[in-house]
Amino acid sequence: MSVVTRRTLLGAIATSPLWLQAAWAQPTNLKISHQFPGGSVAEGDFRDRLCRMFAAEAERNTRGKLKFSIYPASRLMPSEAQIPALAKGALDLTLVPLSAAGAAMPELNVVSMPGLVTSYEQGYAWKDAEIGQEFKRVLAERGIVILSWIWQAGGVASRARPIVDPQDAAGLKVRGGSREMDMILKEAGADVVSMASNQIRKAMQDGALDAAMTSSSSLISFRLDEVSKSVTTARGGAYWFMLEPLLMSKTAFDRLPRDQQAALTKIGADLEGFARKSAQMDDAAVAALFQGAGGRTVDLNGDSLRKWQDIARNTAWRDYGERNATCARLLALAEKTIA
């Protein structure tokens, strides 16, 4: 910008009406929606805490130029509406299981594929591997930016017998949490029930559900120990891993100046350590929670894990890879990360 042009611009700002200057000075207000119970920065579901920590740090880093409103427990919109709203630019940020949009965007289901990720080390290695770079590109094409990679292991709460091997699910009404997990459960003889994680407690309480697979954090936050008799934890390994990232609308992200984009990207990455530690703490805490309530706690062993993987490979993995070329490419890249 030339000196004359800059002076002209500064002069225009100085002589502009006060209401116009005030409008230019207003901070950008961004909305964060998620489906998990609300709390505070210090207490509660770590996914809600992470959103609050992110908002506080972003506001501090940008000296108040960015402000955030956080809507927990699906208060702003239903959980299944969050990713479509994000993609259309109708929502700014969300922390949500990507499987919630798996029906409309089947490619996203690679991050909830049973048995494909079996450890936190493997999951977090995706970010800088070929699979992570390709997955970020696919999301960007759909108008979505990943700010924090958040992997969570999951377990199974059951009103009856614990579900350890696939045959244990036979004849039970089970919530799997993703299209692919549902395929495996059907193969194992279960009666599959689909619902968001925040609906599990009521369904189990009413007897509409016998067992539910969900993250350790959700097992705790939704107090499933109060409506279940047993839990299979992720402490000994898990075939149920899901990416539940902090996401931002690309429309909202692209509107920000580059320094603010860089700040949000760095803050999101810095919080991944907190997310990983918190998820692993929840894996251990859920066992103590159920034991304290008089329930039965069991863990998976290597043989049980392989049984679930064998079913997954011959059903869900095959089905996913055949859906389209992008799915096939993502699956092939993901399989490269399996030790």
Rank of each mutant, 00 (worst) to 15 (best):
83 I>S: 02
108 L>G: 03
264 L>D: 00
224 L>H: 04
209 L>E: 01
163 I>P: 00
140 A>K: 07
222 F>Y: 15
125 A>F: 11
8 T>H: 14
170 A>E: 13
191 D>S: 05
202 K>P: 04
237 G>I: 03
156 V>A: 09
138 V>W: 04
284 A>T: 08
195 M>F: 02
160 A>S: 13
1 M>D: 13
314 N>K: 11
214 T>V: 07
105 M>P: 01
128 D>T: 14
138 V>G: 01
199 Q>I: 05
334 A>T: 02
144 I>K: 04
25 A>F: 03
164 V>L: 15
109 N>F: 02
49 R>Q: 11
151 W>A: 02
10 L>N: 14
165 D>V: 14
245 P>K: 02
206 D>L: 13
246 L>M: 12
247 L>N: 00
270 D>M: 08
261 Q>K: 15
145 V>F: 02
282 D>M: 05
81 A>S: 12
288 A>H: 11
170 A>H: 07
325 A>G: 05
302 G>N: 12
68 F>Q: 04
240 W>C: 04
192 V>N: 00
206 D>E: 14
296 R>F: 09
338 I>A: 14
223 R>L: 11
169 A>S: 15
162 P>E: 07
288 A>D: 13
68 F>Y: 08
320 Y>C: 04
307 K>F: 11
246 L>D: 03
138 V>S: 04
309 Q>M: 14
325 A>W: 04
105 M>D: 06
75 R>I: 10
218 S>Y: 10
293 A>C: 05
154 G>M: 00
200 I>E: 01
172 L>W: 00
78 P>I: 06
149 W>R: 03
210 D>Y: 01
315 T>N: 07
75 R>A: 12
148 S>N: 06
9 L>K: 11
31 K>M: 10
8 T>M: 15
129 A>R: 07
155 G>W: 00
279 A>D: 10
148 S>A: 11
76 L>R: 08
192 V>T: 09
223 R>D: 14
323 R>P: 05
27 P>S: 06
279 A>I: 10
145 V>N: 03
168 D>C: 05
101 A>N: 04
316 A>M: 06
151 W>N: 00
210 D>L: 00
167 Q>S: 14
18 L>K: 15
258 R>H: 06
224 L>V: 06
33 S>H: 09
337 T>K: 03
77 M>Q: 08
187 E>M: 05
165 D>Y: 11
160 A>R: 10
16 S>D: 12
26 Q>R: 15
4 V>F: 13
19 W>T: 12
56 A>E: 14
274 F>H: 06
312 A>V: 04
12 A>C: 12
112 S>D: 10
313 R>T: 08
295 G>H: 02
241 F>E: 03
265 T>S: 13
302 G>S: 13
156 V>E: 02
321 G>Y: 03
293 A>M: 06
18 L>R: 15
13 I>N: 11
166 P>Q: 07
268 G>Y: 01
170 A>K: 09
298 V>S: 01
286 V>H: 01
88 K>P: 04
59 E>M: 10
126 W>M: 12
23 A>C: 09
323 R>F: 10
137 R>Y: 07
221 S>P: 05
249 S>D: 04
308 W>Q: 02
16 S>L: 13
170 A>S: 14
266 K>I: 07
307 K>R: 15
221 S>L: 05
63 R>E: 12
179 R>H: 15
214 T>Y: 01
143 G>M: 05
194 S>P: 05
128 D>G: 10
176 G>P: 02
251 T>G: 07
239 Y>L: 06
35 Q>H: 13
272 E>D: 08
